[in-house]
Design a protein around this nucleic acid. Structure first.
Lengths: 151, 151
DNA sequence: CACCAATCGTCTGATGTCAAACAATCTGTG
DNA sequence: CACAGATTGTTTGACATCAGACGATTGGTG
């Protein structure tokens, strides 16, 4: 069996020791796992994470420039171009010119976009529940509060 | 001034609202900030994060194959090749053949590598203290415990 | 021994992100 | 108005990461 040979190797579960003394590493590793889960979920859902966030923000605060979306959602401007391209091609968003400043667009969510957002949004609670199943609701709140302090 | 025009924009600090209801996004965002800080610190120190982790693990558990390093440190095998290349070129590590299994190396830390590790390690507490200055020591322990549960 | 599957280190191709440059447009100063 | 500097959206090039393929080697089966 495999374990008999693994005893030859050191197999120290060294990562746990590392994570205990390097909070930054633990944070990055947890984030990587969660991000992978989010990408997989978004893939099944058919709407990318960035696209979902853009639709959600447009629905919450109204038409925005790509710049505003980019800053608030922490998505690079260069990447935001592609995200909006995809959303526009799918009919979830219109790029209207901002009459007050013709450099910027006023990216606007469409009725179809709102429907798509509602559908995608409905699957989020189950996704979060699954991804953070190792934590109790109280612990999730604690984690949220700690991360909020960090940001 | 800029704020008078910013009033025209929505400027809702929307990200905070998003982070409150999307624990996964908050986690990824915090991780990105911390990772950036770690990279910057590693740049000043002159020893990459991956290189530091490899030296530290070799010092802790003795000679390892690249595979073992890769699995335990969650660094892709392809990337580990470059990390070990750099470490070997700098004289911090030797690649000895494992006589029991000539497919794998026995990556071994050198005396120079140990000295380099000690120097780099000394700067870590200050780095962590600075990066997580928004949290009290108790809160850092809480965060560590929550992340450990997640992993 | 011959053979087949698995493993280790390496390399290559595809992908994604980011910094820098660019044209178009705005603001402000003279 | 003319002109300099900043901003918006976009494109391009550099860079890192990852999946997959590959040779070399090992272990196990007959």
């Amino acid at each position: 069996m495999a374990t008999s040979r693994a005893a030859g190797r050191v197999r120290p579960a060294y990562f746990q020791q590392l994570a205990a003394e390097r909070l930054d590493i633990a944070l990055c590793r947890a984030s990587a796992a969660v991000a992978r889960a989010a990408d997989a979920h978004a893939g099944e859902e058919g709407l990318g994470v960035g696209q979902h966030l853009v639709l959600q923000m447009l629905d919450a605060v109204g038409p925005c420039s790509q710049q505003a979306l980019s800053e608030e959602l922490r998505i690079d401007r260069s990447v935001m171009v592609g995200v909006c391209d995809d959303l526009e091609r799918a009919g979830h968003v219109r790029r209207e010119r901002n009459p007050d400043d013709r450099r910027s667009y006023a990216v606007t969510i469409t009725a179809a976009g709102r429907r798509r957002l509602a559908a995608a949004r409905a699957s989020i609670p189950a996704f979060l529940d699954d991804t953070f199943s190792a934590l109790t609701p109280d612990e999730r709140d604690q984690l949220g509060a700690l991360l909020a302090k960090l940001l």
